[in-house]
Nucleic acid binder design. Structure first.
Lengths: 225, 225
DNA sequence: TCAATAAGAAAACGGCGTTCTCTTATTGAC
DNA sequence: GTCAATAAGAGAACGCCGTTTTCTTATTGA
C-alpha cells in the first residue's frame, strides 16, 4: 500500500475507509461491520484505521452525519410551503424509508455511537448533527406553520426516537424472522415503512392537538419547567 | 460450590443467576453486565452459567419478562375504569419511570436480546411477552374505552418503541454526559421522565384524534392493508 | 545525501461470549 | 454397602473483537 502523506491523500484514505464501511454495512449489516471487515474491504491493514479515526464509533458517526445531511438536503428541497398533516407525515416517513442506513445509525446513536470517543470529537459531531436537526425542524415549520418552532424541534427529536425504536424492531435477526413467519406472531411482522408512517402521522396529529390545547408559548408540558 | 441436582436446587441456581444479573445491572449498567461479572457476583464459575441458560441473551430476556409482568401487574391493579387521556398518559409514564431496568431491557430487546437464542426458547419467551403486552392493551382499553382494541394494541407497541428510543437517549454514557453539561447542548439533556411523559401524551392524543377521524373498524392507516 | 518523519504492517493485548475437557460429588440399582 | 452411571463444578482453551504497541521503511525537506 502506497503511503498517504499529503493532506489530500489522507483525505482520500478517510473517504476510502468510510466508503468501505458503508459497503460492509450494506452487505453484512451492523453485526458484520467489524474493523477487520472494514479494513479488508478497504484493502488496508486494521491497525492503520486508527491513523484516520479514533475509534469504530467515530467512523459510524461520520457516516451518520453524512446520511443525515443528505436526507435533510432532500427534505429542504421538497418542502417549500404549507402542507396537510397527512402529507407532511408521508414526506417525513418517506425520507427515512429511503435511507435505511440512516435509520440503522440513528438507532445506534445513543446506545453505542456516542461512546468511546473523545469529548472534543463528539462535540464537533454533535454540533453538526444539531445543525441538521434544526434544518429538519425548519422544514417542518414550513410545512406545518401551526406548529411553534420549539414544538417542531421537539417533534424532530421525538421522530429520531421513534426511528431508533422502530427500526431494530422492524429488522429482526434471523432467529426472530423465523418466528415472525408463524401466524401466531404475524402481527409483529409489520414493515418499517408501515410502522414509521403510522407513527409519524399519530405523532403529528398528537402534536397539533396538544399545541391547540396549549394557547401559551409553551410547546409541551415539560418544556416550561 | 455444592452441586445442584434436584429440580428445586436447579431452580434456585437459575434464580441465583438472575438475581446476580439484576444486581450487576443495577450496580454497573449493561456495559458492566458481562458473564464474568454475573458469575463472580453469583459466586459461581462462568462456564456453569451455560448449564442453566443458553446464552447471555436468554438471561436478560427472562429478566425482561419478569419486569414486564410486574409492571403489568401494577397497571392492572390501578386501572379500574375510564380515565382522561392526560391521566392515562401519566399512569403509563409512571409505570415505565418506576422500572428503569424494564426500560433498559426494552431498549435492548430488538437490537440484541432477540439474537443468539434457539427458536424454541425465543418462541416461548415471545409468547409470554405478548401475553403481558395484551394485558397492558386491555388496561389501556379500560382506561380509554374510546380506543378500539386493535388501536390499543398498536398503542402499546408504539409505546415500547418510544421507550426503546427514548431510554438510551436519556441515559447517555459519561462522554455525552460531559457535553450535556455545556449550555450549548442543554436542550438535549431532558430527563427520561419528562420525555416519556410528553411522548405518551402526544401519542395518546394523536391516537384518539386519528381514531375519531377513522369511523371504520380500521385502527390505523396500514392495519387494513 | 541523509537524518527526521510518519504511514504501513504485524504482532500483541486484554476482554468478551462460548465451548471443551476433566474431575468428582451425588445418585439409584444391586 | 458397593459401584458404575450421571451430571454439576471447575478451569483451560477457543475465536473474535477493538485497541495499542512495536518495528520497518517509504518519503520528505534541508
Amino acid at each position: 500500500m502506497i503511503r498517504a502523506r499529503s493532506p489530500e491523500a489522507k483525505a482520500k484514505r478517510r473517504a476510502q475507509i468510510l466508503r468501505a464501511t458503508a459497503d460492509v454495512l450494506a452487505a453484512d449489516g451492523l453485526e458484520g461491520c467489524s474493523l477487520n471487515a472494514i479494513a479488508s474491504r478497504a484493502g488496508i491493514v486494521k491497525s492503520n484505521i486508527y491513523r484516520y479515526f479514533e475509534s469504530r464509533e467515530e467512523i459510524l458517526l461520520r457516516l451518520l452525519l453524512d446520511d443525515l445531511t443528505g436526507t435533510c438536503d432532500g427534505l429542504s428541497m421538497i418542502v417549500s410551503g404549507p402542507m396537510s398533516v397527512k402529507e407532511t407525515a408521508q414526506l417525513l416517513a418517506n425520507g427515512f424509508v429511503a435511507s435505511p442506513r440512516l435509520c440503522l445509525l440513528i438507532s445506534q446513536l445513543a446506545p453505542t455511537l456516542e461512546h468511546n470517543i473523545r469529548t472534543d470529537t463528539l462535540r464537533e459531531i454533535k454540533r453538526a448533527l444539531l445543525v441538521q436537526s434544526n434544518r429538519a425542524s425548519a422544514a417542518l415549520t414550513t410545512a406545518l406553520p401551526a406548529l411553534p418552532h420549539a414544538t417542531a424541534q421537539q417533534a424532530i427529536h421525538l421522530l429520531f426516537s421513534l426511528v431508533a425504536g422502530l427500526w431494530p424492531m422492524s429488522n429482526p435477526g434471523p432467529e426472530l424472522a423465523n418466528l415472525l413467519a408463524e401466524p401466531e406472531f404475524a402481527p409483529l411482522g409489520q414493515s418499517f415503512a408501515d410502522r414509521i408512517h403510522d407513527a409519524i402521522l399519530i405523532l403529528l396529529s398528537g402534536l397539533t392537538t396538544v399545541a391547540k390545547q396549549d394557547p401559551h408559548n409553551r410547546a409541551l408540558p415539560h418544556s416550561g419547567h
